[in-house]
């Protein structure tokens, strides 16, 4: 059982964000897929985009994406000290497209070299699409003196930028299930 859990933990930032500590994640092999109880579920095709043309704010800092003097991405800022500075993900934008993101509730009671039978639990399965097409996914990691870029005394240092494009292979399944004392 423990070996199964050790082997199957997979960190995915989006799920770590929403389920920080108790949600354990696992990669499954084909053999597990043949023991699914419960049909239904969904197969999702489509795309998700963030600030494709810009966001709803237009001021001295934010603008439309065709305005080179303004930032058109989203901004996420937080601080860990009461009167401290702000850690910022700035100018977040991009587009992800995929076919085959699946979502369902299933029971794992076999496979995994015998660990599945011991595990014998229901899990939330997020079946990853084989390929995700990234289209100009970008953001900056920065530090800032104020939460809003329009606040008085605003100063910001961009530490580094990330820009991703092309196909990203994401195979397997992400399993989410409770552990520990609820």
């Amino acid at each position: 059982m423990k070996s199964f859990l050790r082997r199957t933990i997979l960190a995915l930032p989006v799920f770590l964000f929403s389920l920080p500590s108790l949600a354990e994640l696992a990669r499954l092999g084909d053999e597990a897929l043949s023991h699914i109880s419960g049909q239904g579920g969904i197969y999702l095709s489509g795309d998700i985009s963030i600030n494709e043309m810009g966001g709803p704010v237009e001021n001295s800092y934010f603008g439309r994406c065709d305005d080179a003097d303004k930032k058109c991405g989203a901004r996420f800022a937080y601080r860990l000290k009461e009167d401290g500075g702000w850690v910022v993900l700035d100018d977040i934008r991009g587009n992800f497209a995929f076919e085959g993101l699946t979502l369902r509730v299933r029971k794992v009671d076999s496979g995994f070299g015998g660990d599945g039978e011991l595990f014998n639990r229901d899990v939330l399965e997020l079946g990853l699409p084989n390929t995700v097409r990234f289209n100009d996914v970008q953001f900056k990691i920065s530090s800032s003196s104020t939460a809003r870029p329009t606040d008085p005394g605003f100063q910001q240092t961009d530490i580094f930028s990330v820009d991703m494009r092309g196909d990203v292979v994401m195979e397997g399944n992400l399993l989410v299930f409770p552990a520990g004392n609820p």
Binding site: N51, R79, R148
Partner: peptide, 24 residues
């Protein structure tokens, strides 16, 4: 105990086109 002294998200415009079909 306060762990995070404020979160501020600005200027978000998120679009999703998702079509649900049965899992083949």
């Amino acid at each position: 105990q306060t762990a995070v002294y404020g979160v501020k998200m600005q200027n978000f415009d998120i679009k999703a086109n998702l079509t649900a079909t049965p899992i083949p």
